[in-house]
Nucleic acid binder design. Sequence first.
DNA 1: AGGGATTGGTTATATACAATAACGATATCG
DNA 2: CGATATCGTTATTGTATATAACCAATCCCT
Lengths: 166, 166
Amino acid sequence: MRSARDRSVCDGRRDAQPVPDDEHAVDLGPLDDFIGYVLRRAWLRVSADFQAALREVDLKPTQFTVLLIIGRNVGLSQSEVCSALGIQKTNFVPLLNELVRRGLAERRPAASDRRSHALHLTPEGEALLERAMTLHAALEERLTARVGKRGREKLIELLHRLSRTD
Amino acid sequence: MRSARDRSVCDGRRDAQPVPDDEHAVDLGPLDDFIGYVLRRAWLRVSADFQAALREVDLKPTQFTVLLIIGRNVGLSQSEVCSALGIQKTNFVPLLNELVRRGLAERRPAASDRRSHALHLTPEGEALLERAMTLHAALEERLTARVGKRGREKLIELLHRLSRTD
DNA sequence: AGGGATTGGTTATATACAATAACGATATCG
DNA sequence: CGATATCGTTATTGTATATAACCAATCCCT
């Protein structure tokens, strides 16, 4: 979130030099009262925070959720992971490939269907997931500090209502 | 947001065929209680809603905000718009080009600096912006219906707190 | 049991969006 | 004047998401 006030740091004009009227403060209009705009700014911010918090384990948000789901549902197929997370199966392939390449997850032959793969975490994957969970918990605490414990619960409830299909 | 229950529609297995335990319901674990995850799902949803709502005027979220800012701050330079909205100046060029190509905005020579451009809306741009504002207001009402009038205010406040730099 | 339709996984490809590097023209500062 | 910074631009990269087409395996229906 960059407020109009921040603009001064990118502004070559000096205070000594008279600026035409109030042009030095950009009028954002009703923007800060639009759900979509505020939601986008919040997402960009939290997204950056996430990236910084999980840099040590080098996991992107989607990779993190995939590891989490696989860890909690041993033997899940790729399609199942995809529909559970709302990912496109075609985009899931390179994502999983990367996790496999790093030795975090495995594709094992499925028992009942020779087309599908049963997905498992390797011991390394489980260890990394655990570490990632710790880092993520710390992030969640920092985010909670911004909105308060009660505010966090309310926020999550409101966001769920916002994304529910009506 | 795709719930675990939706998975059945992508699931080849029949009910008659005994499924190992409760595997037919994917355990999302603590995911639905993570601010980042819930925020992302909400953003994706609202983003899609926005696209649908403003299809008539064919404006993407960023284009909409740019028109809004230019309309409210006549003669702003490109850099000023960029820093006000947190956009990269390099990414702003093709965005503005498109608006100019469609006859919605203009680059006029700036009075005080021959390097910079004073940005203006054309009459067509102003008309389209007004129409877009109407469509957007309707969208905002539909979103408000999901969280309630009071919930909307609370949500915006919480999102602001979430994206503020601490 | 056989044959059409469907599904799981994959590849290739297209589009949108954000970030970096470098450049010419202009403006500012010492 | 000369060093330095800024405005706008191009080119390029990386990431995220969506579409089309494909093979093999499975399902469904008669």
